[in-house]
Write a protein that binds this DNA or RNA. Structure first.
Lengths: 205, 205
DNA sequence: CAGAGTACGTACCGATCGGTAACATTGTCA
DNA sequence: TGACAATGTTACCGATCGGTACGTACTCTG
């Protein structure tokens, strides 16, 4: 076990194609799993498209399941970053932060070829709660639920938990409807519905 | 013994296990596909659990894809029947009809082991629009969307299309959230949120 | 009772699945 | 130059995938 770090990490251009085999596999798996579905993609296809070989995959990942879990952890990280980035323009304004993401999602989920949320899709593809893909997906959704609750509390909602769950339903509905309806997706009304629900909920006493 | 009634195909003991091979396959496939996912279930497992053999499957169905499509058509039929049944107690009251289904769904989607909507799941499992599973799923969703629009028009909503899409988002969100959260699903607030959204939408002018 | 259909099972196919063993090659640093 | 880590090459494994050629048992009809 030598975890020796090179003192001169040079010639490391992130945009370059070759890179490390493990990274190429990770990126390729991310793209294929998300686009085509996890169960639809075999390890053979991943290594072929990544331009590497199967032993390289199994040197970097214990199994396909572990690669799947890694894909979903990557997806979760990107999701959180993006969620935060959308609201970054509205510090100290929870409602504006949430609406920024909601408007972003409404546009994105109403484009042809949209594939929804990789984490939601994984939970559906692996209904067994014991499967790592299911677990990572559920954990991410629980974190999203909690984040929405924080935002709703910040808005001063009388019942923040209830409003957060309502918004979560709208968001998850946008993920899946976008896949079924493409550019004419019901997700196009997500922004208007979220606003209406928020206003009505803030008005309750 | 005397069976002069060969023209009438009866002698049907509905509760009996053996029945015809094709029917057993259909029922078993329905259950397994819904419970475990379509891609997760092979034809071998279907015929084993149905107590028949593989050639019997391929005599009744052209291919696995055709069996899948049949499963989804069956699912769609049961869904429409159930949707209608939930609102049957409120003739000439579109809002009550819709809320009856919504309340039913809120309860069902908040039980452990809930597996969501088989049609939604199929669209996610088969993202390729050319695949029959995807197509049958999408067609069913379009019909549901239209049904919701009818109901919203019947309620006198100023923008029935918009409200229908909002309700569709809530409903689809309940399907998928139920799988991730089990008994503590956000779907428990579906009834309250649908009511709030409907009232707020009816009040717009 | 003969014979034709019908309904089903036995046994098998090639392809692909996830995963591995053994060895050759490369590039980097000392 | 030589050690070492990373990667490629090749060939393979048992299991399972969707799908089929072919033989057998039952039943209805003539």
């Amino acid at each position: 076990m030598s975890n020796r770090t090179k003192s001169t990490p040079q010639a490391r251009e992130p945009s370059e194609t070759p890179r490390r085999a493990a990274d190429r596999i990770r990126d390729t798996a991310f793209d294929l799993f998300y686009r085509e579905g996890i169960r639809a993609i075999g390890v053979e296809e991943i290594v072929n498209r990544a331009g590497v070989t199967k032993p390289s995959l199994y040197r970097a990942f214990e199994s396909k399941d572990e690669l799947i879990a890694q894909y979903l952890r990557d997806y979760d990280r990107r999701f959180r970053d993006n969620f935060a980035a959308q609201g970054a323009g509205h510090p100290d304004d929870p409602k504006a932060q949430l609406l920024a993401y909601v408007d972003y999602l409404a546009a994105r989920a109403s484009t042809d070829g949209y594939r929804g949320c990789g984490l939601t899709n994984a939970v559906i593809e692996y209904p067994d709660p014991a499967h790592p893909a299911h677990q990572v997906g559920v954990e991410s959704k629980e974190a999203l639920r909690e984040r929405l609750r924080e935002l709703c509390r910040g808005m001063g909602a009388p019942d923040a938990e209830e409003l957060a769950d309502g918004l979560l339903l709208l968001i998850e509905g946008s993920y899946v409807s976008g896949q079924a309806f493409g550019a004419r997706s019901p997700a196009r009304v997500l922004g208007a519905m979220a606003r209406r629900l928020i206003e009505a909920s803030l008005a309750t006493r």
